[in-house]
Write a protein that binds this DNA or RNA. Structure first.
Lengths: 142, 142
DNA sequence: CCTAGTGAGTTTGGTTTTCGAACGCAAGGT
DNA sequence: ACCTTGCGTTCGAAAACCAAACTCACTAGG
């Protein structure tokens, strides 16, 4: 998890990724929609590309122009973003800003996806899970 | 989501919360396990308490000693942490560090929880969902 | 031809944050 | 009397951040 955070553990990075999921692809648009300072944005995009989360693709020569798209690795961050969105809507909403809503193409309903157990299909909360392995013993060793 | 990130959009904050889910409660232990610099840790704990994610509780007077526990709001961040954990294991693992594994108390199996649709129960990926509402039009307005 | 505009950055210079190391303080142990 | 534990705070140096201006390579309009 620390390694995951070394990639996405940054305010601007996550805002950039949110926009990427909304199909923003160009530097100017990322800049306008996230409000990130341009040098910071340039640096973040570069490191996301280095980390394989975004792909930098030329969409024009003369003049050279590039766009940034999510890779498979990037798309797989969706649960992180959705979980944050959900938590923000639940705990941090203020009334004069309507939340983003998500529609499930499969069933057509407006929903907030939640965690479930792939083993038994039940919904999962923190209390239903326990850590095992190296950290479990660490935490217990107190 | 931006508001959510204003609370947890920080490398150290998320590491602190990870430890909190492992039942770390004391300043020294947070410091040792996250490696966060002490002044940063003090400031982060304070702001997490301000934001209602952690609760600061006195567990001894003479000398005064405090511990930090997750509130309900904090516990509800579990999906964010689990999603990060899962992504890190999938995309950032290196072989000489065993991943943390999670057991579902309900069915006893070792699993990585995933997102599902509360409407129809199907598993959900980024491609199955579409945004509607204010941002959808914004993204389309290009 | 001259000027304006667009897209994708880079440079600059000044302000915040962050960091590691050391310190403070109140007790408890030996 | 001295060392240790727990929980922080203070300090100066180093790094990151920011807004604004600049660059470069074109395209479009008059």
């Amino acid at each position: 998890m620390a390694r995951a955070l070394s990639v996405v553990g940054d305010r601007w990075t996550l805002l950039v990724l949110r926009e990427a999921f909304f199909r923003t692809r160009r530097f100017e648009d990322f800049q306008a929609r996230t409000g990130a300072p341009r040098p910071v944005l340039a640096e973040r995009l570069r490191s996301l590309v280095d980390d394989g989360v975004l792909e930098r693709r030329q969409y024009s020569d003369r003049p050279d122009r590039f766009e940034y798209r999510l890779t498979e690795k990037g798309v797989d961050l969706y649960p992180v973003l959705v979980s944050l969105l959900r938590w923000g809507d639940r705990w941090m909403s203020d009334d004069d800003e309507l939340p983003i809503t998500l529609r499930h193409r499969g069933c057509g309903q407006i929903v907030q996806p939640e965690l479930a157990c792939p083993g038994c299909g039940e919904w999962v909360t923190a209390r239903d899970m326990e850590a095992v392995g190296p950290r479990a013993t660490l935490a217990g060793a107190r």
